[in-house]
Structures are given as structure tokens and as C-alpha cells.
């Protein structure tokens, strides 16, 4: 084996060049975009046909409201106010939830102990816990972050734990065969192996955190984006209301897209 690899034997698999799939991808994009366009046009026509646009504003008025809002400093302040508990709540949920999920994935007893609590939190609509949070923490930043935390934590833990189960047990045996200590095993086998699960947990957790960040503000505290929504709702300012809601959806989509991109990059080793 001192000679270079015999060509007849292990030639590397050819990496696909341009695949037909890329034209399929454009196709999907165009079809998706077209359907949205159709819906928007239908909305516009329907709205214009109405007597009153109090409840269903026209698309054009929403667009105008959107543009006005983006120039309104109060809009951006509202988002800043809302994003702080979002970041704190999601961050804490990740920092506590991922290690817990990893430990649970590796330990049956721990799973058995934690399951009742997680099942309880999972079954409950978290919004119903908001009054409890308020009683415990008040209505400041900690309370709002706590609500985001509660929304995100369960899915983060469960998704991470599930991800561990996908680690090929042969890899753990191999690691034992070479006498790897716990640290090497965690670093080289468990964490990278669980990474797809961890990133999925991040993606799902971020989605839940977006929900949580608004719920608190809608239900009780008049700050941030929730306050805007309440204000426009109470003032019957539908174009502005719709604009804010759409901005939230856009935010949520942006978060998911970013995490999705990170996920894709980190799991490149999976190959085609």
C-alpha cells in the first residue's frame, strides 16, 4: 500500500455536479410565490368589494401602513423592547435545556424522573401559566423572559433528547474500543452526533419563543409589540394592526430561516 490508491479499487464517489434538482427547486419557488401572489390579489379584490374596511383592510392600505410603521421610531422601539426578553428567554432555555436533553438522552433514570414535569408543561397551554408567572415574578423583564423560557424549554429538552437516540451505537463502541475517556467521547461522538437534534431544538425552540414573546405582552403587559397590537386593535386601526402582525410573521420566518441555514451548514457531513 505504499503506492497511491489503485484506481480500479477505491475511486471516490463522484460528487454530483449540477443536478436536475436545482431546476425543480426554482419550480417550487415559482409555484409558491405564484400562489402567494394569487392570494394577495384575491385579498385586494375582496377587500375593495366590501362596504367597510374596518375589519378587513385592503392590501394596499396595509402596505402603506407597513411603510409608515417602518419609519416610525416607536415601532422599532417596540420591537427592541420585545426582543430583549425573547433573547434572554430563548438563551436561558437553550443553555439549560440542551444539557438537560443530552443527559436525559443518555440516562434512563433521569428521563423517568423528568418526564412527568415535561409532560405536564407540554400538555398545558403555556399562556395559562402567565398569571402564575406574574404573581411570582411581577411584570418586569424577568417575568417576560420567564414566559418565553416556559414556551421554549419543553420542546428544546425533548428534541435534544430525541436527537441523542440517533447516534449510531457502533460509534460509542468504537470509542470504547480505543479507550476514549468520557471527555473525548462527549466531544467527538456525543455532541457532534447529537448536533442535528440540538439544532432542530434550536429551530423549534426559537419558533416557540417567538410565540411566547408576544403572548405575554398581549395578555397582560402593555409593552413592546404586544402593546402595539393591543393599541391598534382597540383603536380599530386595522391596516396598522395587520401590518404589525405581518411584521411578526416576517420576524418569525427570518429567525427560522437563519437557524435553518445554520442547521444545514452544520450537518453538511451527512452528504447528499
Amino acid at each position: 500500500m505504499t503506492a497511491p490508491a489503485p484506481v480500479s479499487e477505491g475511486a471516490p464517489k463522484t460528487l454530483p455536479l449540477s443536478r436536475p434538482r436545482s431546476s425543480g427547486r426554482w419550480q417550487r419557488l415559482i409555484i409558491g410565490a405564484s400562489s402567494v401572489l394569487v392570494a394577495l390579489v384575491a385579498w385586494e379584490f375582496y377587500a375593495r368589494s366590501l362596504e367597510s374596511n374596518l375589519f378587513i383592510p385592503t392590501l394596499t392600505s396595509v402596505i402603506v401602513a407597513f411603510v409608515d410603521l417602518s419609519q416610525d421610531p416607536e415601532f422599532w422601539t417596540a420591537y427592541r423592547q420585545t426582543l430583549v426578553p425573547f433573547a434572554w428567554g430563548l438563551g436561558t432555555a437553550l443553555v439549560t435545556g440542551v444539557p438537560l436533553g443530552l443527559l436525559m438522552g443518555r440516562s434512563k433514570p433521569l428521563t423517568q424522573i423528568s418526564t412527568p414535569y415535561l409532560a405536564f408543561l407540554n400538555a398545558l397551554p403555556i399562556s395559562t401559566l402567565v398569571p402564575v408567572v406574574v404573581i411570582t415574578f411581577g411584570i418586569g423583564l424577568i417575568a417576560r423572559s420567564a414566559v418565553v423560557y416556559l414556551f421554549a424549554i419543553v420542546d428544546i429538552v425533548l428534541t435534544t433528547a430525541a436527537g441523542i437516540r440517533y447516534i449510531n451505537p457502533d460509534l460509542l463502541e468504537m470509542s470504547d474500543a480505543f479507550g476514549a475517556n468520557r471527555w473525548t467521547r462527549v466531544k467527538r461522538v456525543i455532541v457532534p452526533g447529537a448536533m442535528p437534534g440540538i439544532l432542530a431544538a434550536l429551530r423549534i425552540g426559537a419558533g416557540r419563543a417567538v410565540v411566547g414573546m408576544v403572548v405575554m405582552e398581549l395578555l397582560l403587559v402593555a409593552v413592546g409589540v404586544g402593546r402595539l397590537i393591543s393599541r391598534y386593535k382597540d383603536g380599530f386601526k386595522s391596516p396598522e394592526l395587520y401590518a404589525v402582525i405581518i411584521s411578526l410573521a416576517a420576524f418569525g420566518l427570518a429567525v427560522m430561516a437563519i437557524v435553518g441555514a445554520v442547521e444545514k451548514r452544520a450537518t453538511r457531513w451527512r452528504g447528499e
Binding site: 500500500m1 497511491p4 477505491g10 475511486a11 471516490p12 457531513w269 452528504g271 447528499e272
Partner: peptide
Amino acid sequence: VGLTGFENHYPHQLSGGM
């Protein structure tokens, strides 16, 4: 083992023999 040059390849890019 005759694999110089493949240091930065990933397993999924290699044949079974490699």
C-alpha cells in the same frame, strides 16, 4: 494505506474500500 491527499475528505465522500 495510500490515502495521502484525502486528509480533508469526509467519509461519505469515500468508497467502502477507502
